[in-house]
Design a protein around this nucleic acid. Sequence first.
RNA 1: CGGGGUGUAGCGCAGCUUGGUAGCGCAACUGGUUUGGGACCAGUGGGCCGCGGGUUCAAAUCCUGCCACCCCGACCA
Length: 575
Amino acid sequence: MKLSKMHVKTLREVPAEAEISSHILLLRAHMIRKLVSGVYGFMPFGSRVLRKIEAIIREEMDAKGAQEILMSAVQPAELWQESGRWQAYGPELWRIKDRNQRDFCLGPTHEEIFTDIARNEINSHRQLPQNLYQIQTKYRDEKRPRFGLIRSREFIMKDAYSFDKDWEGLDQSYRDMYDAYARIFTRCGLEFRAVEADSGAIGGSNSHEFCALSEVGESQIAYCDHCDMAATTERAACVDEQAPAEAELALEEVLTPDTKSIEDLCAFLHIEQKKTIKALLFEIADSEKYKYVAAFIRGDRELNMIKLINALDIPEYAIEFADEAAMGEKTGAVGGFTGPMGLHDCCIVVDSELLAAKNMVAGACKTDHHVKNVNYGRDYKGDIVAELKVIKEGDPCPQCGAPVKMTRGIEVGQVFKLGTKYSEPMGAVYKDESMEEKPIVMGCYGIGVTRTMAAIVEQHHDENGIIWPVSVAPYHVIVTLVNSTDPVQSALAEELHDRLEAAGLEVILDDRDERAGVKFKDADLIGIPVRITVGKKAGDRIVEYKLRADKASVDKEAEQAIADAVEFISARRRG
RNA sequence: CGGGGUGUAGCGCAGCUUGGUAGCGCAACUGGUUUGGGACCAGUGGGCCGCGGGUUCAAAUCCUGCCACCCCGACCA
């Protein structure tokens, strides 16, 4: 392919809207272009990269016996009403109406559709197991699209759904997908970790996120160098610190003016944050039992909202920070001075770490007052006791006790065990060997294809541009013709190009009538892993070979073909 | 959803304070000279100054409403 004939327009300047490397470089290299916020198109180079990533996904999915299908992006509201998610999904669900005012949505994911397929078309145990997947455009009307392809409103996703007779079958399907994902991301050249994750709104009992390690990632990961523990901070268990044994002292109310924060309180009383109890107040929407919740954790800890939500067994959207004044009237809470004693008509949730913590300082539920020597059991009790903390760097690993490390990652894939969460309410059942009807046991497995593309760029670039791993590069080799007006050089370059193509490589020839510097800059930016320069130096004609990508990622055959071609051209020159 | 910021040529920006009918760099087009790391000279084209309303003889500029885009936050006891 000749670059002079291609529709490629690189940008010299950084578009104002882009902040992170992948967004900047993909725009500058003209791989993508924005239409509106969070909606991007893919230009020739970008489109080729996408197709490469998709091809890897197809190969690995097919190798596990999954079958590709293609469903519509438009989905009728009825299916979503049936699963209850028409309500529950919230404003992110991109809703549309047809000319008759009938409700539809643009699919953000396809559990309903695939469950519908299963209930209509799978009747017998003889048809199980199955794994169906598609690579298709998804829509999520994100409240805040950002970082280009990392969080967009329209994106390409591979979604797969497994259907099994029982949980043992699902375990196998899940393992297969887990293995396939590890192979896919490895082949894409990503440094990643599979981390335990909270299963969140999609539901189910078991889940892993595949995170490409990156500082710009939105997932925070806790991991351990001494064992295989890796989990999102939402999910990671945080080990309770063993409090030293102490005799329980008598309660003592103290005047602590203007000490609304833990810092102020500790400075005022000259104590450690570890010796304090922090209160966090919440209001629950549509709760039958308690409208208000007070959560208590040690003063130096941070509350993990996901753990609190799980402990309360409520949906994520139902909880909000409480209006202190309103809550105070009903429960006796006092902003900045709330403690576990003196509260009424609210659910008290206590972090498990506080059970053994002796002689703590807590709010007195009285303005400008705290109470010293507060002890669990003697002075207060929780309606719920649960582990509620966010793990932080250096905390002991929940598996082996070594200090945990923290990193950030871009979630490029996730695997879920759904179980019967959708099959049961939607009536997707099969008849087993004994003619009995049973719900199909499901799993779902997603890969953000466009996000994977961005993650690869985040991990593979330098100050000059993208450096694609060979496996996903838009072309393998770029032949840079230094002076396209020199007929000898041109002929050499064209011959080299043809020879490399004949050897099965994807080759691009930069034959544009531009100065060498422009061509080098563009080649750096676009990131084709192998660059061959045909030009003239010190009076002699030369052919130079430069590898930008990681050498290990260039397969041996390709490398040999390039070496042969370069050698052939060089020999011709000498002869 | 809350806070902040920005909308002027394809891209990056100035002009706005103090109203007088739009400019710079890059890109594009034509001609010439150049050709191993974003060349040079000469010339050319391209603008509902985000949209609507208002003030004024006159609005990119002042007032007002809306829209779009970007960033930050959503952990406070």
